[in-house]
Simulated assay, not measured.
Amino acid sequence: MSARPVDNSGEPAQRDAVLSFVGTQAKVQKSGMIFPENLSERAWEQIGSSLRELVNSSVWWLADWVNYGESTYGWRRYKEAIERTGLDYQTLRNYAWVGRRFEHHRRRDGLSFAHHAEVARLSPPEQDYWLRKAEQQKWSRNELRRTVRASLAAQSGEEEPREVARRQPQVTTLTIELSADQLEYISRAAAAQGVPVDKWVTQMLDIADRHGAERRTA
Rank of each mutant, 00 (worst) to 15 (best):
A3E: 15
A3G: 11
V6D: 10
V6M: 08
D7M: 03
N8L: 07
D16F: 00
L19N: 12
K27N: 07
Q29Y: 12
K30P: 00
S31D: 10
G32M: 01
G32T: 00
I34Y: 05
P36S: 08
E37D: 11
L39W: 08
A43T: 13
I47N: 07
G48N: 15
L54F: 12
S57G: 13
S58C: 06
L62P: 00
A63R: 03
W65N: 07
Y68I: 06
S71Q: 15
T72W: 03
Y73I: 02
Y73H: 11
G74C: 11
W75T: 08
Y78I: 10
K79S: 11
R84F: 00
R84K: 09
G86Y: 12
D88R: 15
D88Y: 12
Y89L: 09
Q90I: 09
T91Y: 14
N94S: 13
V98K: 05
E103V: 02
E103I: 00
H104T: 06
R107Y: 01
L111S: 09
S112R: 09
H115L: 02
H116E: 07
A120K: 08
L122I: 00
P124R: 10
P125Y: 13
E126I: 00
E126N: 01
Q127R: 02
Y129G: 00
Y129I: 02
L131K: 08
A134K: 04
A134T: 04
E135D: 10
Q137K: 15
K138C: 14
W139S: 01
R141G: 05
N142G: 03
N142C: 01
E143W: 01
R145S: 08
V148T: 09
A150W: 05
A150L: 08
S151M: 09
S151D: 13
L152V: 09
A153V: 05
A154Q: 13
A154T: 03
Q155D: 13
G157M: 09
E158W: 04
E158C: 10
P161Y: 08
R167W: 06
R167F: 03
P169H: 09
T172V: 13
E177G: 09
D181H: 12
Q182C: 04
L183V: 01
I186S: 06
I186G: 07
R188Y: 06
R188A: 12
A189Q: 13
A191S: 06
V195I: 15
V197W: 08
D198Q: 08
V201L: 13
T202H: 06
M204Q: 15
D206M: 05
D209L: 08
R210E: 10
T217W: 02
A218C: 07
